[in-house]
């Protein structure tokens, strides 16, 4: 079966794709951190962050529609949490709309949550869509993220689709025997499916490990080459970080 991979566009060619994963990770996290620590009520800093994101996104040549749909996926979650704040918030100036009133502070909270989430998520999408997953993990490793986490994440990325396929096949086999799952006592079928999926995954893990041992695996992953950070990587990292910081610092003076 075909799946949509999180790094589907990670092998395009663009200046952003060519950057070292470490430079991208640090620069984009700098934007995220500056953005989420910006106090509510500030306007200019968000313009700076948004501009940075747009410039990087434009340079990355990612399809606009792909970016937009990915970013918009988070919107419903924010709306569920924050949409009612303007109506519930008490104290401070309000705008009277007849039937109910809207709190000014509440509106600022809503705006803040939305804009921070959108900018942060855009940064993460930029990172994961311009870097093949394997390179991202190796970049993390070289930034001293424990190997345990990167190895687990790499295996998850490799095998999650296989497990999804397996679950899908089990579901088809079940449904073709007219399973409807109508009543609560049908739930045990789903329990059994989860259990057998777990057992199959565990057995597969055993076989994968055997296949790795057969090729001399001893618990470490030696690498062919260790790419070095080039001038362009340092430049990108510093430029983006400084720009984000200056956006963040504007607040202090005003």
């Amino acid at each position: 079966m075909k799946h949509d991979f999180i790094d589907r566009y990670a092998r395009l060619e663009s200046p952003v794709h060519a950057l070292d994963p470490r430079a991208k990770t640090i620069a984009l996290f700098a934007i995220v951190i500056c953005c989420v620590t910006t106090p509510p009520g500030a306007w200019w800093p968000f313009a700076v962050y948004a501009a940075l994101v747009l410039v990087i996104a434009n340079a990355s040549r990612l399809p606009l529609k792909y970016m937009a749909t990915r970013v918009l996926i988070v919107l419903p979650f924010i709306l569920v949490v924050a949409l009612f704040v303007p109506f519930m918030h008490e104290g401070g100036p309000t705008y009277d709309l007849g039937l109910f009133s809207v709190s000014r502070d509440g509106l600022i909270v809503l705006w803040n949550v939305t804009v921070k989430a959108l900018i942060s998520v855009s940064c993460l999408i930029l990172l994961s869509s311009t870097t093949p997953f394997a390179d991202l993990m190796h970049g993390f490793e070289r930034m001293k993220v424990p190997r345990f986490f990167t190895t687990v994440a790499s295996f998850m990325y490799r095998y999650v689709f296989l497990i999804v396929d397996e679950a899908e096949r089990m579901k088809r086999a079940r449904d073709s025997r007219n399973y409807r799952g109508r009543w609560i006592w049908h739930a045990h079928v789903i329990g059994h499916m989860i259990a057998s999926l777990f057992l199959r995954s565990q057995e597969r893990a055993e076989r994968v490990y055997q296949a790795m041992s057969a090729r001399g695996f001893d618990g470490t992953f030696p690498r062919v080459s260790e790419p070095k950070m080039r001038a362009a990587d340092y430049f990108f990292m510093l430029a983006v970080t400084l720009a984000a910081l200056s956006g963040r610092l504007v607040v202090l003076w005003t």
């Binding site: 093949p132 394997a134 790499s154 076989r207 296949a211 695996f217």
Partner: peptide, 25 residues
């Protein structure tokens, strides 16, 4: 040893990494 199910044998994100796994070991 070549295992029956290639999905047990191939665990790396790219072909190159998988084929170089043995020689690197």
């Amino acid at each position: 040893l070549v295992f029956q199910d290639p999905d047990d044998q191939l665990f790396s994100p790219t072909v190159e990494e998988d084929v170089s796994f043995g020689p690197l070991n």
